[in-house]
Design a protein around this nucleic acid. Sequence first.
DNA 1: GTGAAAGCGCTAACAA
DNA 2: TTGTTAGCGCTTTCAC
Lengths: 344, 344
Amino acid sequence: MGIQEIATVTGLSKSTVSRALRGMANVAETTIDEVRRVADELGYVPSSAAAGLATGRQRAVGVVVPVIDRWFYVKALGGVDAELRRAGYDLVLYNLGGPGGDRDRAFRRSMLRHRVDGLVLLSLVLDATERTELELTRHPMIVIGGPAPGLRNIGVDDRAVTRIAVDHLCGLGHRRVAYVGGQDEAGMNVAVPHLRRDGFVDAMRAAGHAVPDRWLLDGRFSFAGGVVAGDALFGGRAGAQTGAGAVPDRPTAVLCASDEMALGVLLAARRAGLSVPGDVSVIGIDGHEYGATVGLTTVAQDPEAQGRAAARAVLAEVDGGTAGAIAAAPAHLVVRATTGLAPG
Amino acid sequence: MGIQEIATVTGLSKSTVSRALRGMANVAETTIDEVRRVADELGYVPSSAAAGLATGRQRAVGVVVPVIDRWFYVKALGGVDAELRRAGYDLVLYNLGGPGGDRDRAFRRSMLRHRVDGLVLLSLVLDATERTELELTRHPMIVIGGPAPGLRNIGVDDRAVTRIAVDHLCGLGHRRVAYVGGQDEAGMNVAVPHLRRDGFVDAMRAAGHAVPDRWLLDGRFSFAGGVVAGDALFGGRAGAQTGAGAVPDRPTAVLCASDEMALGVLLAARRAGLSVPGDVSVIGIDGHEYGATVGLTTVAQDPEAQGRAAARAVLAEVDGGTAGAIAAAPAHLVVRATTGLAPG
DNA sequence: GTGAAAGCGCTAACAA
DNA sequence: TTGTTAGCGCTTTCAC
């Protein structure tokens, strides 16, 4: 069942078997073949616990997510996973489970158990205690998404992202544009919503257009939240009755901090009897698949690539490499059918 | 750094410290307090590898998914995770990464390394080799989703689910109903698509309505696939030009094997200038959040609950309990706005 | 209620 | 190229 059995069967020593199994140099080809054959016959299964104890390396990295059921997290998780598997590492998932989840236990009980060699944090809001605990483990760590104090992070330039969107809109003649963003109660990094909103407001101001407060809405970074925000902007279903003019003071364009919200705003616009982009243009941020199908214009990013980069970074550190600088993740405008010339 | 340090500082033996740390009986209250205090002071972090080696239990279970970025898998994963954390177990994620992924390596290299005490498989299509390898590990195992030969599984009754949908549709007077299902290339259990389709065809036949082959479409279980299927059914965007009559032989209702596909069909219908449910009714299966917002009628299931149940089942087996019977997961009709009386 | 000692299955010097 | 010898940090009899 263990390495020992193979040793006795082959008449070799445990060390040689161990070396052969790991394909190390300094082992005769014939020995390697023999050992592998016997291992297969015996149905040998290595014990990662034993190997981990002996080497101090678990060949596993942890990924901490605030919640799992969000497009960005799922995609990023996929990227991290792909890269880890390539390197032969396992991925242990720590889901904080949103605001209701028992974060504390997750942090103390599991993450710190030396089960992993490194950590990838997804857009986390860490409090002081959590940060101290994490640092205490001295694990290589990196965060994906917004910046976190004292930790290296990979992600798009959030201010730049909204600026790109604003430039596109203004280029089409829009001057009255609303913004749907807001804090994500599910635990997204606090910095991201703020950076994007500030980027938006600043870019608009730079273009010479003021943004009234009532056009800065909270869409909770969800589809449903986007619908609610859109209803507020367009007068809701009621708007459909009286036509597109239900809300006298309507923006000609809406920038959403995520595609999921943009999808919701789109639905609200349609319900209100508005034509897109005839009456109102809508642009999102992310590059969500659904957006492609409905023709949503967006500033696309690639969370999967960010996940892969993050994984490579921790892996490099785990393997003794020093923490190199991380380039900002790219984002680019994808013009589709929901943005057009400003009306009038 | 280890249990030993605590022992020397407190003047106790390793065994007592170990017992105290785990809160076992036969340890003086005062001793426990003392040990805990010192452990905290020293920033003691237990080693799961060492504990695992000694006990043979890793306090972790593996979850194998074909791909991660699908609604059902994400939700189920969340359920498994919640239950595992409650029990103090870690979750290690094995993502096969779809058809392109290196399944083989995933199976051999990692899953079998005794890193986990049990396995939860999500809707997997296992080939003979994989099944043998898995059985070789002698891990408690359970699959969520369609039935898998030789393994216990939890999931909805897929034939019943489509029957519920058909009953609803027929009750509204529909006799010409199409079906969008199909094989999921991303690795969904082969059984599910077949069971649902057969359930549909049989239920229709029982109601006295034949289903022509051209109304049995493949939507690949994705939003985009649903759009394509809907275009085929309704004449695509071209239909919008000539009005609702573009396709002479149009069904009055469409049953989709997943809400994601139903959402796509809905989009296609709207594009073709059809009114829902005036011209055509659409019903899905799942209970996807987006569906609720757009008013999609569906046969809802609860993958999260299924995940929790699956986790409880493996945990019970891991703890020496015998494998109890598992009740079929519930599914129920949620009537919203996309289904109505058959036209005419 | 506590301690001593023997491993769990593997890796890693150090020899040969 | 292969073998020997110590552990890695914890749990667990078995004594006391």
